[in-house]
Structures are given as structure tokens and as C-alpha cells.
Amino acid sequence: MRIAKLAQFIIVVAVVYALLKAPGVFLGKPIPESLIFMYMVLVVATVLLVMTSTDESAEELFRPIRALVEDPKKAFARKIVFVIAPIVAGYIAYGLSSKGMEPPAELRSIHPAPPSKMTAYGKRIDMDTLENPLRATETGEKEVFNAYVADGAGIYFKNCVFCHGGKLDGRGHYARALTPKPLPFKGRDTIAQLSESYVFWRVVKGGPGLPSEGGPADSSMPAWEDKLTEEEVWKVVLFLYDFTGNRPRERAREGK
């Protein structure tokens, strides 16, 4: 059976749209809406051009539409379409304009480059050589290490759990209200990619300490410098890695 031109047109456009949406739905890596919009404008234009390149095909494409408007026999269908079309258009317009308080799209870097030195706890800290002073106990004194981790867990559940969640998956009670979302520590793409000194910097300086490329005041992470001691922060860092089974990123030994 031969498919009508108008149906072909609708099918092609719908299939392309589905293909463009697929990476977002199935793989969790959506193609940005702004780009889909551009792609679809192009696809609709191209399909229209192809279908109107000969007189016969153009005639066949528009015949059902013309018939719907002009043919007295289709009066009923016409009435239905003339009622539904404005409603659909209105619904789309409503959807577009009722986005609420969504922040504007910006160019934001999630893990901006840290400074090479910072001032915290009344001293200058060299980020290049900064190590977790408690990490050494992991190999030698296992009980001491476990005690540190347990302390870290206590601090975590008193301070961090509300946003970062009881399972360290970034889904605490407050998480849904925040943009950007609190980072999960599980998985291989957050703290597993970072050195302990980086995590230390982010905890101590928080959102206010982000450089400008990190987005203007985007992160709601507090600066913990005044609320936790240096040792407490290091204990939390130990706990984060220990609980999620991640290893901190080793510093590249090239003597920069």
C-alpha cells in the first residue's frame, strides 16, 4: 500500500524527532533542546523542499489540507480540527511561557581549576603539595584509620547529609530545591576523578570560593572553614572515599 504524501511527511518528521530525543531518554545524555529546535527547523524545511520539488508531489502533499478546508463533505472533520488546533497551539504556548523561575542557561564549569595556593585556617596552603595528613594511617595503623573514618561519618551525618544524602548519592532532603544539584559521591565521575586536596578545597571554601568560571554564586555549598576544624574536614574526606569505595586521584609526579 502506498502511504499518502502528507502521512509520509508526518512520519519522517516524527521519526527524526524521536531519534533526536532517544539519547536523552535511553542514555541519559540528552541532546540540548536548543539544538533539537535547530535540527527540527532544518529537517522540516528540507522535507518540505523535497516534497514540493515537483508539481505533482506538491499537489499531492497539500491536497488533503486543501480538501479539509474546502471540501463540503469534510465539514465535520473541519470543525473538529478547527477546535482542536487552537487548543493545541494554546497548550504549547502555555507550556513555553509557564517555565516559572528556571535560571537562564549559562556557560558553567562543574569542576573549575583550583587556585594554586589558598589561605585557610590562618595559614597559606600550597594546593600542589597538599596531602591528607590522616591518609598515612590507612596502611600502618588500621584501627586509627577506622576511628578517623567513623569520626568522619559522624561529622558527615551531622552536617552534610541534608543535601548530599544518607547514601552519599546527592539526594538529601534539600537536594531537590537546589540548582545545581548537590554532587553525589558515589560513582566514578565525581570524587574518584579528584584529588583529596581538591575535595578539601571545595569543602573549606564552598560555593563562595568558586572562581568565576564556576558560575556566579551558583553553588549553594557553604564554606565550612568557620564551622569545621581542619582535622574534621580531613576526616570527612576520608569517610567520603571509604564509604563509596573510591580512591582519590593520585597526584601526577612530574614536579610541575
Binding site: P23, G24, G28, K29, P30, I31, P32, E33, S34, L35, M38, Y39, L42, E102, P103, A105, L107, R108, S109, I110, T179, P180, K181, D189
Partner: peptide
Amino acid sequence: FIVWFTPHTLILKPWEASALGGQYHPYL
């Protein structure tokens, strides 16, 4: 044409940025 006008740095909505984890798309 599609390849030609796909920008490298994308305009992202916040939810898209958090899903992609950055300004660059893994496939595009």
C-alpha cells in the same frame, strides 16, 4: 548542514547541564 552548525560549546538548560555534566556533549 547539521554537522556544520552544531556548536562545540552548547547552550544548555540547567537540567541538561546536570545530565551531561559539562558544557560539551559526549556524542555531539
